[in-house]
Simulated scan of single mutants.
Amino acid sequence: MTRLTTKTAGGQADAEAPDPAAAPPRPPAARRRAAVKRRRNDENVRKWEIWLPLGLYLLFTLIPFYWMLLYAFRPNGTTGLAPWPLTLDHLRHVWTDIGFGTYFANSVKVGVISMFATTFVALAGGYGLARYDFRGRKTFMLAMLCTQFIPGALMLVPLFEIFKKLELVNSLWSVIVAETVFQLPLSLILISGFIRNVPMELEEAAWVDGASRLRGFLVTVLPLLRPGLIAVSSFAFIHSWNHFLFALMFLSDQEKYTVPVGLSYTIGESGSDLGSLAAGGVVAALPVIVIFALIQRYLVKGLSAGAVKG
């Protein structure tokens, strides 16, 4: 908008007159509504930029699960894209005839014992790394981190010889020990980071009140580590549940197979029976899905807590 000025006879500028061709000023309420509208349009654009790739990724991820469920619950001889009528014959076949009930129990035993052993040892070691300053601590942490770059396949022969001398071959304890050892370095580093985020003053206050170091840790630090411990424990269990290599190499009796090993032999035992193979996949995937559904909020909170510092 331009302003027109007129001068009087004395040469003084008179009051400015508005340009008739300029648009009239918008009232404040209209400007606010326009700003809100622009902000909503920007938010809608950002939502599409986020949800569109996430939706495509989710679709790409869920299609294999859908086909697995389709073959697992669809009767043989049908070709529909919906599992109807539903049948549990494939699940019943793999659970009883093939032996997935035994495989499932073995995997639960390996996963639970490995989870508790890994969490307990990592908690004790992580506390020492977080609260004590000793010579070689950083070197030790670096060594623990570097072990994550070593493939487990390189350690199969040495581990087999060790377990053979200890008479642990063809025993679930060989798989439990191997899983615990290979998961311990990362779990120790994560828990060490979680403990560093807990102020030392809380423990010192407990010591002043007469608590020992162990009791001070149990009362002040351990309750605050719950999200981190849940994250570490869940990763330890899921890794032990899904790991295939150690169970394949150290176990020879079919009664001691875990779910991944039993699933690999389903192809040979069932031939081209895709329904049995898909039902075995459902048995293998269901516990992992349930665990993530139950602990996902603790998992995100625990990982974010350990990533703040340390």
Rank of each mutant, 00 (worst) to 15 (best):
R3Y: 14
K7H: 15
G10C: 11
A13Y: 07
A15H: 10
E16K: 08
A22D: 08
P28Y: 07
A30T: 11
R32W: 08
R33Y: 08
A35E: 15
K37W: 13
W48L: 15
L58Q: 06
P64W: 01
L69G: 01
L81S: 10
L81W: 14
L86W: 11
D89I: 08
R92K: 12
W95S: 09
K109Q: 12
V110C: 04
V110R: 00
V112W: 04
V112A: 07
F116A: 08
V121Y: 06
A130D: 09
F134C: 09
F134E: 02
F134P: 00
K138Y: 09
M144N: 05
Q148E: 11
I150R: 00
G152I: 07
G152P: 02
V157K: 05
S174W: 02
F182S: 02
L186P: 00
I189G: 01
I191K: 01
F194Q: 10
F194K: 08
I195Q: 08
N197Q: 15
N197W: 02
P199N: 10
A205N: 10
A211W: 06
A211N: 10
R213L: 09
R215K: 10
F217I: 07
L218G: 10
F235S: 03
A236E: 00
F237L: 13
I238W: 00
H239G: 14
H239Q: 14
F244A: 04
L245M: 13
M249I: 15
T258M: 06
P260E: 02
S264R: 09
Y265V: 10
E269I: 12
S270V: 06
G271N: 11
S272G: 07
S272N: 04
G275Y: 00
V288C: 10
I291C: 03
A293I: 08
L294A: 13
Q296D: 10
R297V: 06
Y298V: 05
L303V: 05
G306I: 01
V308Q: 05
G310H: 00
